[in-house]
Computed example of a mutant assay.
Amino acid sequence: MSLQWSIIATFLYAEIAAVLLLTLPIASPSKWSKFFKSKFLAYISGQAYIYFFILIGVLVLCLLDAIREMQKYSSMESTDHQHLDAEMQGNMRLFRAQRNFYISGFALFLLVVIRRLVQMISELATMTAQCEANFRQAQSATVTARSLLDQAGAGDDKNKKEVDEMQSKISYLEKELSKEKKDKEAVKSQAESLNKEYDRLAEEHCKLQKKITIASGGDSKKDE
């Protein structure tokens, strides 16, 4: 195997290992997301699209070269059957071309798969973080709502207690007011009876004065 295809085969083995690491339950999506957002990968991710398209281009060129080699040696196999050595060499070169075709094809396919896996894991980690944040917000909202309900219940009890106190004060004041009215009516009736008694006494006093005046007038006439 030439150096070129040895490098591509090594890259293919690395891709297989990466796919296994990403698909096996070794780490959670959040940990993979933290790894993808590390300083080193963040530095590389700025030029990731360039590297990706360069690798795509190289693998496509290798794939086309392998297809060309396959077509070349396939045509030679169908035309040349004279020498056994030449036929064996042609079969060997055809086998190498087919091997290179599969190596470059699988490397190209796994490169696209790895890119898609990284995107899906990052999106899953983001969605998981959003779900956790929404769950924490829902929990805090539930706690807040419960505390408000408890405060509202306590406020209702307090208001009910204040209303009861005000009602008791109102009933007490009503009783005091009715008592004052009764006392006022009693004083008024007493004052009316006193006025009547005063009028009666005044009339009697006038009558007595008249009698005294008459009596004193009769006595004076007798003395003359």
Rank of each mutant, 00 (worst) to 15 (best):
M1H: 08
S2G: 06
Q4C: 05
W5Y: 07
W5F: 08
W5R: 02
S6K: 15
I7L: 06
I8Q: 02
A9P: 02
A9V: 03
L12S: 01
Y13F: 11
Y13A: 15
A18G: 03
L20V: 07
L21S: 13
L21C: 13
L21P: 00
L22K: 02
T23N: 11
P29H: 01
S30I: 14
S30V: 14
S30A: 11
K31R: 12
K31V: 09
K31N: 06
K37I: 04
S38H: 05
F40S: 11
A42V: 05
I44L: 12
S45N: 13
G46N: 01
Y49H: 14
I50G: 00
F53M: 03
I54Q: 03
L55Y: 07
I56C: 00
V58N: 06
L61S: 12
D65S: 12
I67N: 06
E69I: 08
Q71P: 02
Q71F: 08
Q71M: 11
K72D: 04
E77V: 13
E77L: 15
S78C: 00
S78V: 11
T79H: 07
Q82K: 05
E87A: 13
E87I: 08
M88A: 10
N91M: 07
N91Q: 09
M92P: 04
F95L: 10
F95E: 12
Q98A: 12
Q98F: 05
N100D: 15
N100P: 00
N100V: 08
Y102M: 09
Y102A: 09
G105M: 07
A107N: 01
A107M: 02
L108V: 04
L108M: 03
L110P: 01
L111G: 09
R115W: 03
V118G: 08
I121T: 14
E123Q: 13
L124P: 03
L124I: 01
M127H: 09
A133F: 07
R136H: 06
T142F: 15
V143N: 12
V143H: 12
T144H: 06
T144E: 15
L148E: 05
L148G: 00
A152Y: 10
G153E: 15
A154S: 15
A154N: 10
G155W: 04
K158S: 05
K158C: 06
N159C: 04
K160D: 13
E162Y: 03
M166C: 07
K169T: 11
I170H: 01
S171G: 04
K175R: 14
S178H: 07
E180Q: 13
E180W: 14
K181E: 02
K184R: 03
A186I: 10
V187M: 11
V187K: 10
S193G: 01
S193M: 14
N195K: 13
Y198W: 06
L201V: 05
L201N: 05
A202Y: 05
A202C: 14
C206K: 09
K207P: 02
I212D: 04
I212E: 11
I212S: 06
T213M: 07
T213Q: 08
I214V: 12
S216F: 11
G217H: 15
S220T: 10
